[in-house]
């Protein structure tokens, strides 16, 4: 029982940065913009967070720094993409490489140093509960933040007017424009906001989940996985968070299994989550296959349930929108 609770606590913690990054990219992509720079941004933000905390002695300042880095890279994507109308994918890709190298280069003096970490909060009332206590009672603030944000963004996206406008902009920018919605402004705003969350994911790595800085830091690849989970999650905050936790589960499981089977080579367990993730992606997207539709046709009662498996990207994802250009 205790073992299970501790494992779950570990999964919540290990998944937190991934959840933050996925939520951020979900917001960005819902607005119709693709920020591909996640992997580099997370590393640069992680390095900045740790360096700032190390120099100032204040981990919270580090966290603020990571947000700033996330927003800065998002600002470059916004400038090249929506504002200047150039390729979002190209700039994102270059930023990925640039930020990663920049992080290793600038972070070199802080590598393998002892630095401050975010405190672990213990929540009165919850920490004394049986079973729940060990899972949710003692966690890093970033864990609580990731859980809270998941629910908040879900509500925001599907139950508020602002969330509706965000979805509208990512679906049909021209129709949104015709209805007086400020498409360009919303796109810029949500890309920056999404970038902030991606940056926060970096800070969560270096100040809580995988504390410290080094080469490798341990956050490498997280950005790419997050990009995949956004798709896996169907651009839906709850499903995206679920995907992130699934990946964290696979990683934690890998560590346990490695202990159980010392004879097997260690890289096997490190690599295993990735193909498992691909299989899951396949499973999740069965909604668009022919036999699945046949099922819906034969049993109309299941249609509503089956349609939930159908995942469609925001219709205007990655598309340019310039109202001054006449069609």
């Amino acid at each position: 029982m205790d073992f299970l609770a501790l494992t779950l606590a570990g999964i919540l913690s290990a998944g937190a940065p991934l959840v933050l990054a996925t939520l951020g990219e979900t917001l960005t992509e819902r607005a119709g913009v693709i920020n591909l720079s996640l992997d580099g941004t997370i590393l640069l933000a992680a390095m900045t967070a740790f360096a700032l905390a190390f120099v100032s002695g204040n981990p919270w300042l580090g966290l603020v720094g990571s947000i700033a880095v996330g927003m800065a890279t998002a600002a470059i994507v916004v400038l090249i993409g929506p504002v200047l109308g150039r390729s979002q994918l190209a700039v994102g890709f270059i930023l990925t490489l640039l930020c990663r190298d920049l992080a290793y280069f600038l972070g070199h003096p802080y590598a393998r140093q002892f630095g401050p970490e975010l405190p672990v909060w213990s929540i009165p009332g919850i920490r004394d509960l049986p079973f729940i206590g060990p899972i949710l009672g003692y966690q890093s603030p970033v864990v609580y933040l990731s859980l809270g944000l998941t629910v908040f963004l879900w509500w925001w996206l599907f139950s508020t007017r602002a969330g509706l406008e965000l979805r509208a902009v990512g679906e049909e920018p021209w129709a949104a424009f015709a209805r007086g919605i400020k498409v360009q402004r919303l796109r810029i705003m949500y890309t920056l906001l999404g970038g902030a969350l991606v940056g926060l994911a970096g800070g969560a790595f270096s100040l809580a989940v995988k504390p410290g800085w080094g080469r490798p830091q341990g956050a490498e690849g997280a950005g790419w996985i997050a990009l995949a989970i956004v798709i896996f999650g169907g651009w839906h905050p709850l499903r995206a968070a679920l995907g992130a936790y699934l990946f964290a589960t696979l990683q934690v499981l890998g560590i346990y299994l490695q202990e159980q089977f010392p004879g097997l080579p260690a890289p096997l367990f490190q690599v295993a989550p990735f193909p498992v993730m691909i299989l899951t992606l396949l499973l999740v997207n069965v909604g668009s296959t022919g036999w699945f539709q046949e099922l819906a046709f034969r049993y109309p009662g299941m249609k509503r349930w089956l349609s939930r498996w159908q995942v469609t990207a925001p219709a205007a994802l990655g598309q340019d929108f310039r109202p001054e250009r006449e069609t």
Binding site: L164, E172, A175, A176, P314
Partner: peptide
């Protein structure tokens, strides 16, 4: 002629 609406919503 082609409705300016949001099919996904």
């Amino acid at each position: 002629q082609d409705p300016m609406d949001f099919p996904a919503l």
